[in-house]
Design a protein around this nucleic acid. Structure first.
Lengths: 124, 124
DNA sequence: TGACGACTTGTACAAATGTACGATATAATG
DNA sequence: CATTATATCGTACATTTGTACAAGTCGTCA
């Protein structure tokens, strides 16, 4: 079983953590580079966020020469579960259907996507 | 067009706002009563949250005798759009498919739900 | 091996957030 | 009309969050 009492993630921390997962292993610089053009955060800020993420137990780091190389310390799956759960509770009182509906109605999800999903749940 | 530059909602504010929508019109007390058993917040805290929500423009209130009766000042649809968008960006880099997948894989969504959704998008 | 640069660390700080006490105002009741 | 029960309001305050400067450290290149 995965550790369950991790401190909550702030929005910005979540953003950074996502990039660390995406990169698998990343220096502060790597994360900065990977930031979406729309959401530019200063190097120093990313640093702080990574530091806090580490203190909270979401990432760890190795030292490669001068650089710190951060990597995830928790399963993505696990964090997603919590985050989605919280989000659902806050905005929809825990009911996932309206969220699906929203996604479906806004062309964020294509019919094919839903097909795929149907197959997934069906086979389960 | 709906007003677009509303200040961001904090998690707790979101929670309260959801209840106001649900109740349509609500006093502080009403909101307190409606709070999920798991998430009990003190009366005074709910008050503050409603005040802040009003200052930010998400709710307004009438006075009925001594009691303040709060009601939504923004379309639910509108807030949901923003919230879901932000959430998706933070946790999934904007891609909704993994979210659907998560929901589907965790029995949060039944096959019937997906059927319904499929019909929805199909008819669009 | 000494100077240069890339990185980290320590520290700071304003704003936002979560939470709530004490004082005040008011509807209702006897 | 005085009392009481109930609400609100102003205010407060510890944390968390977002953001970042300045100083220190450690490879590296000439």
């Amino acid at each position: 079983m995965t550790q369950n009492k991790l401190p909550a993630l702030s929005p910005s921390e979540t953003e950074i953590l996502r990039l660390v997962w995406q990169l698998d292993k990343a220096t502060v610089q790597d994360v900065c580079d990977k930031l979406p053009a729309k959401r530019k955060i200063a190097y120093a800020t990313v640093q702080t966020l990574l530091r806090r993420l580490e203190k909270k137990g979401y990432v760890k780091h190795n030292i490669n020469g001068k650089a710190h190389v951060f990597f995830p310390a928790v399963k993505r799956e696990h964090v997603i579960k919590r985050s989605v759960g919280d989000f659902l509770d806050r905005l929809f009182g825990g009911d996932p259907v309206p969220l699906m509906q929203y996604l479906a109605e806004h062309d964020k999800i294509s019919a094919e996507d839903i097909e795929k999903l149907k197959r997934l749940t069906g086979e389960k």
